[in-house]
Amino acid sequence: MAQLEPIAENLWTNEAEPALIGGRLPSGKIVFPYPSGDAAEGVEPYRLSRKGTLWSWTRQDFQPKEPYEGPEPFQPYLLGYVELPGEVIVETRIVDCVLEDLKLGMPMEFVVAPFDATRSTYAFRPEKA
């Protein structure tokens, strides 16, 4: 995916096996995304787990209004929440599967996926057995 620009900076790590960048609050609590502005004070960047379990899911069947910037013509897409054990539950695009494949608690893994012709975003997909 070297030719695609990430949709935002510092959302995931730049390494061979990238992972989302969350934050660890002084209380030990893990948050995502890493906070901005004054809310970032005292928050350490935290590399989130690449593996988790499916917490909930849905399919976006109509084209959202702006600020959505997805490619035209609109294609329905999957999204949901993935629980990263002991860390946090993150909202994410879900790729490489169809709605009917998805089951509560199924193992999921992190992946960087194309968003449009020029940009990439983060997603999770069912873990390959």
Partner: peptide
């Protein structure tokens, strides 16, 4: 953050 709306997760 802007990406949350851009990627179509803020509905």
């Amino acid at each position: 953050p802007e990406w949350y709306g851009q990627t179509g997760m803020m509905l």
